[in-house]
Amino acid sequence: MNPVIFTILLGTVMLGTSIVMTSSHWFMTWLGFEMNMMAIVPILMKKYSPRSMEAATKYFLTQATASMILMLAIVINLMYSGQWTITNMENYTASMLITIALTMKLGLAPFHFWVPEVTQGVPLNSGLILLTWQKIAPLSLLYQTYSSLNTNMLLLMSLASITIGGWGGLNQTQLRKIMAYSSIAHMGWMMMILTYNPNLSLLNLLIYILMTSSMFMLLIFTSTTSTLSLSLTWNKTPIITVSSLITLLSLGGLPPLTGFMPKWMIIQELTKNNSVILPTLMAILALLNLFFYMRLTYSTALTMFPTMNNTKLTWQFQNMNILPMMSPLIMISALILPLTPLFILLN
């Protein structure tokens, strides 16, 4: 893709998200979503192939449906309240439709089917944008309207997302699909705590974006897309392989790594609100995620695969994927658990 065109498209994606985050008018919010969607579709097809075209089409149809439901909810709310203000959501039907539209855009269960398929069909760079930046706009709108949302439906969808995010990744060998199911599970954790403590949901989003970005950067650096190719990186880049191991375990929420912090704080907050069954179920279901991360870790760093002759000399060739932010992101993804008391005070 032409660098000028790519820069314009990326700028439009960022502008659309910024409009959604800063607007207090429903029509401007809807416009921001549309700008974002129309600009991200060509980015998903950056390396054109029938598979990327299929993925972009699935993404477009899903997001267009969610936008249509969102506009229906906005119109219903306008008919009953006579206002376009985001925080003024009094009608039950409009509240339920907005919850459905925004969770569809996020990829929460039962609207999660597009996330693994789209992520698998696009390049790693586009997958990184899809699973990190594209979550910000719907979550910012949910943050603004959390008091008006259908709480019971949101909690049920969150629990289903945590279940499917762990269960769906168990049988996968493609790394992009594993990251997609990981995203579904993390979104479930964020939505679960949204109605209790929205600030904690934002902290979870920030840590999720940092960990997912570092993992995708490691995959881009080594040009790996499957478990088999990841298992052969030990012969070429042992330090990167160990970094992948640490980042994967952090994504799984294993102490004493960074990923344990949001899970710890969310379970603590739910317990404070006299909810015992939900955090217990969430902690049990989190073991499913940890299992397939451990499977990847085992095949990557704990097993010495046979070294083929054509991989013995690859260290002589320079890697052209230069990612300057990779080192600090890996350190943040692994080492900020001691700052937990500070975040607890801020919340």
Rank of each mutant, 00 (worst) to 15 (best):
L154K: 09
P138C: 03
S140P: 08
L194A: 01
T87P: 01
N347A: 04
M38E: 05
W26A: 07
N310T: 14
I98C: 07
L251K: 11
L170Q: 11
M53I: 09
T7Y: 10
M190T: 00
N204H: 13
W264D: 02
Y298V: 14
A94M: 01
M38A: 13
L156S: 08
N309D: 03
N150R: 10
Y181I: 01
I284R: 13
E90V: 13
G166R: 06
K135F: 07
N91Y: 05
A180E: 00
G166Q: 04
N235V: 10
M68S: 03
I5Y: 09
F113K: 15
F292N: 06
L194K: 03
T119Y: 02
P3G: 03
M38L: 14
F291Q: 10
N321I: 10
I284V: 14
M211W: 05
I162P: 09
I207D: 04
L31A: 14
F305T: 13
T297V: 15
L194H: 01
R176T: 02
N150S: 10
H186M: 09
Y48T: 14
I246V: 15
I100S: 02
Y196K: 09
G121I: 00
K47I: 07
F221M: 13
L155P: 02
L232S: 02
V122H: 09
I220E: 01
I332M: 11
L149G: 00
L232Y: 07
M192K: 10
S229K: 13
L232D: 02
L230P: 01
S81M: 03
S183G: 11
I5F: 07
L61H: 08
L202N: 02
H112Q: 07
S147F: 12
N321T: 09
T300I: 14
P50M: 03
N273S: 05
L270G: 03
P328F: 08
L302H: 15
T195C: 15
T297C: 13
Y59F: 10
Y143M: 15
L313D: 06
M157Y: 08
T7Q: 12
L139F: 14
F343S: 13
W26P: 04
I266L: 06
L323Y: 05
N319V: 13
L97P: 12
L346D: 08
N88S: 09
E54M: 09
E269A: 02
P238Y: 10
S140G: 08
I267C: 12
W315L: 12
S158N: 12
L97D: 07
L203D: 01
F260D: 03
L285D: 01
M79F: 13
M191Q: 03
L290F: 06
N77P: 13
N309V: 10
V242H: 08
F113N: 14
G127P: 00
P238C: 00
S24H: 14
I86F: 05
